[in-house]
Design a protein around this nucleic acid. Structure first.
Lengths: 322, 322
DNA sequence: GTGAAAGCGCTAACAG
DNA sequence: CTGTTAGCGCTTTCAC
């Protein structure tokens, strides 16, 4: 690996001059610039990012902490973040935390020592108190952690109400909610939306536990449908659970959407892949990723002074399950 | 951010001593160690990884290049790699390349300047010539790039033959293959397996184009089935295509598996989510990720001297589509 | 316009 | 056992 010194020697100049042409700043005579560029090419010299980082205290990299890439909601999000960051010249360090606080904290410590320029985090476990001493920019994605941490998220509450309204509009009389995991921000918001909408319409509520995961959802749906044969509408906490429910319903020989209508939340690809195709509240996943990255970049570059919370609306997508 | 100098001053020792207790090497008196540790705690000091990297020419990070995290095959793979690396104290830099050679090369250059300790790459486009001048360890994952680059992959050829044999064993008389994209290693191998097995059984072959993607597969399946009503078995190049095919078949009112049997390749979760559940050749995805990471770590640590190629067998999983 | 030199924070000889 | 010091490769004053 050639160093700046090698280049300087070959070009017959000082390292300072090489540095100047490298960074395109300060005065340097056209002829010397030529010589230096020639030497750079000849040696196939690439400036050492680590040395640069040490001096500049910036690494041109950001950390991305998500619960689990294996959850179908995240690949698109990660892709969008990675892409936006890459275009801006930043590298992303990816971490799966499983929302384990200890692990998240360890990851953050690690990042600090690596001089990451910023952090995007998707987490329910982490709180403001764990973040407040951090001197690097951070943005919360998909969930709002606290008022003090900028965030980019979706209006889960309003989305849930829309979902319920659709079911009601389609004539459902008994609508159940397969809720997401307790203490998970998005799940609580969606539940709240369901409750409020149902109550405001004077309808009885039926809430079943779930955890955003397929198999549990199948089991729970079986239970739900045997306990209460009159349920004719289900609002699932997310698309994965909706798909699980559909499997269970199909197995029971109940016809969708004639006998029972079901709607999910998220808008992941899976919903268009199954039969019947799933109606859902589609989150603007790519936009979430992109926006959070841009916001973080703004903070990093000092272009953004005030604390911002962006909230997107989920879009109702009617397919064949309602 | 406190530095080693601050710690040294507070503890009343030299930086060398602090470094010694930090790295737990060399002699240091129990009492001084205590003092230093106390100072470290007091300042909440964390050694600067960048400075360390500069000196040691190692960053405790590795690069992972995949085509597209959005493709359902990759999340599990990435997860496995990230996990194994994390446990070994390494951070992973993730890149989506879309298999664009220029981009891959740029990514690799970038990584070199960042002193990554090794690279795991999933790619069909990159060749040995692009890698041969690299001085850092590299391992090819899921595809073999060349004899000179260590790799961890699956026996796609044999897997394909197994798939075809199952279809034949189940009584299929006319078996078509929905092939994956041209020039993609895995796709070519699976095609070859199909051809060889069919030929060895003296059966006529029917190959239809595809690109590992769902919508094209639906369209192509429609075409296939209208062109040739007698097809009673389909070996899809991967699970995603198989799911597309199933959608098309269902739409045509053809019953699976009675009238037509179908089998995929990969063993992604999607296959268990749809109805009917998909028979497939399951790749040991997590193992692939884990093994490639361990292999890379071995190269990094100099424990592995010889060039290794690990090949796993895909496992036949019979579900409801055959 | 250009070069010398200090220093980013750490590690590893080398002395003592 | 402990301290001094010379770098790792780069950027940036500050002279000239």
């Amino acid at each position: 690996m050639a160093t700046i010194r090698d280049v300087a020697k070959l070009a017959g100049v000082s390292v300072a001059t090489v540095s100047r042409v490298l960074n395109n700043q300060g005065y340097v005579h056209e002829d010397t610039r030529k010589k230096v560029e020639q030497a750079i090419r000849q040696l196939n010299y690439k400036p050492n990012a680590v040395a640069r980082s040490l001096y500049k205290k910036t690494s041109k990299s950001i950390g991305l902490i998500i619960p689990d890439i294996t959850n179908p909601f995240f690949p698109q999000l990660v892709r969008a973040v990675e892409e936006t960051m890459y275009e801006a010249g930043y590298t992303v360090l990816l971490f799966n935390s499983d929302e384990v606080l200890k692990r998240e904290q360890h990851i953050i410590d690690l990042m600090v020592t690596k001089y990451v320029d910023g952090i995007i985090i998707v987490s329910n476990t982490i709180k403001y108190e764990h973040l407040k001493d951090l001197s690097i920019p951070i943005v919360a994605l998909d969930r709002v952690i606290s008022q003090e941490i900028p965030s980019v998220s979706v209006d889960n509450y309003e989305g849930a109400r829309k979902a319920v309204r659709l079911l009601i509009g389609k004539g459902c009389k008994k609508i159940a909610h397969l809720r997401g995991p307790k203490n998970v921000f998005t799940a609580e918001e969606r539940l709240r939306g369901y409750m409020d909408e149902m109550n405001s319409q004077g309808m009885e509520t039926f809430v079943y536990a779930g955890n955003y995961e397929l198999n549990t959802s199948m089991v729970e749906t079986m239970k739900l449908l045997t306990e209460n044969r009159e349920i004719d509408g289900i609002f699932a906490g997310n698309d994965v659970m909706a798909v699980g429910a559909i499997k269970a319903i199909t197995k029971l020989g109940i016809h969708i959407p004639d006998q029972l209508k079901i709607i999910g939340f998220d808008g992941i690809e899976l919903g268009t892949v199954i039969t019947p195709e799933l109606s859902t509240l589609k989150q603007p996943i790519v936009q979430l990723g992109k926006k959070s990255s841009e916001l973080l970049l703004n903070y990093i570059n000092g272009n953004e002074k005030v604390l911002r919370h962006y909230v997107y609306q989920a879009e109702l997508i009617e397919r064949d399950s309602t």
